[in-house]
Design a protein around this nucleic acid. Structure first.
Lengths: 130, 130
DNA sequence: AGTAACATACGAAGGTCTTCGTTGACAATA
DNA sequence: TATTGTCAACGAAGACCTTCGTATGTTACT
């Protein structure tokens, strides 16, 4: 009876795979493995297994029409980021987006252009709030 | 020989405990359990065990001088938030703080006062960047 | 002294995550 | 046709997380 409505939070390993998928649109296991093994030693079957599990979880979708199955993300990068962010917000920031934003801004060096971009959104939000 | 330098990322359960600890400064297991069991059914020994493990991991520090041990967070709320945020930034946002901030701002409703606060920090950052 | 309440410690069970070896199917090539 | 390479599937091991029952010790009261 009980069906999962929302996708589960991706784990670290799953997120690494999703990043490749988001970047390329769709991939075979081999492509993902080639990409990932450039920066870390990881076995082919490890990636395969992970992607199989991600299929079960609904994190990715699989096209089995060819011998080498083709995977693509089930959720967009933005949607996933939004979910993860909301999650962290509740778990660690007590729901205060402001605290989170302030923390993020003061942590990482941000370029002038990026600051301008943020200010632009800020202005728009203030406009809407009126 | 090999000693952990940084504290590990707290799990969900550990974070729930840390939030109580940050709020109160220091607590016994009973106090934490009383607080947590208000919102979720969780056994006393479960909380105890978690806090013992957190002590081993270095997430909290323990004063054993009294019969009921007293725990306090090893890292401030801010430091932990910073760590978790940086973590998420790398794992899910490809390191772009701007993307994260924009996402956070557009997701949650933010009050005018908060927006002002953010803009104030923004101005300071732009000043510094010059 | 005896008992009830409360504390930590310990161990184990059940779940998830990560890892990879092995197997068997299929394809390309010698 | 025999061999070599590539693929998905499966199963299992080891680490960690969460959960809690049980054991054992201490305190406080009757």
């Amino acid at each position: 009876m009980s069906e999962r409505v929302t996708t589960p939070r991706p784990t670290d390993g799953e997120l690494a795979i999703l990043r490749v998928l988001w970047d390329r649109g769709e991939c075979t296991v081999r492509e993902v493995h080639d990409k990932l093994s450039a920066s870390s030693a990881i076995g082919y079957t490890t990636v395969l297994k992970l992607m199989q599990i991600m299929t079960e979880k609904g994190l990715v979708e699989r096209d089995e029409s060819e011998r080498a199955h083709v995977y693509r993300p089930a959720l967009s990068e933005q949607k996933t980021q939004k979910q993860l962010l909301g999650d962290l917000l509740d778990r660690a920031f007590g729901g205060s987006a402001t605290k989170l934003v302030l923390q993020a801004l003061s942590t990482r060096r941000t370029s002038g252009k990026e600051l301008a971009e943020i200010r632009s959104l800020l202005a728009k939000l203030e406009e809407e709030a009126r």
